[in-house]
Simulated assay, not measured.
Amino acid sequence: MKTIAGILFIVLGILTAYQSKQAQPAAIDYAKERVQILQLIDTESKAFWDKDYEKWASCWAQEPYIRTMGWWKAGGVTVVKGWEERGPRTKQHMEQHPKPNPQNVRRENINIRILQDAAWVTFDQYGKDNGEPVMDMPGLSRETRFLEKHKGKWKIVYVGWLLEGEGN
Rank of each mutant, 00 (worst) to 15 (best):
M1C: 03
I4T: 13
I4Y: 08
A5P: 01
A5Q: 11
A5G: 02
G6T: 03
G6W: 01
I7T: 03
I10G: 02
V11K: 03
T16P: 00
Y18F: 00
A23H: 06
P25G: 07
A27S: 14
Y30R: 13
Y30F: 11
V35I: 15
V35T: 15
Q36A: 15
I37Q: 06
L38H: 03
L40T: 00
I41K: 00
S45I: 01
K46L: 08
F48E: 00
D50E: 15
D50V: 04
K51G: 08
E54F: 02
K55N: 10
C59M: 06
C59D: 02
C59L: 06
W60Y: 00
M69R: 10
W71K: 06
W72N: 15
K73N: 13
K73I: 07
A74H: 09
G75H: 14
V77G: 04
V80W: 13
W83H: 09
E84L: 10
R89C: 01
R89M: 12
K91A: 10
K91T: 05
E95F: 02
E95V: 07
H97M: 08
R106D: 01
R107C: 01
E108A: 07
N109A: 09
N111V: 13
R113D: 12
R113M: 04
R113Q: 10
R113W: 02
I114G: 05
L115T: 02
Q116V: 06
Q116H: 07
W120S: 11
W120P: 02
T122Y: 04
T122M: 12
F123A: 15
Q125V: 05
Y126A: 06
K128T: 15
K128L: 06
K128I: 12
K128G: 03
D129L: 05
N130K: 11
G131N: 08
M135R: 13
G139P: 05
L140S: 08
L147S: 12
E148G: 02
K153A: 12
I156E: 03
I156H: 04
V157H: 07
G160Y: 05
L162K: 09
L163G: 05
G165I: 10
E166W: 03
G167L: 06
N168T: 11
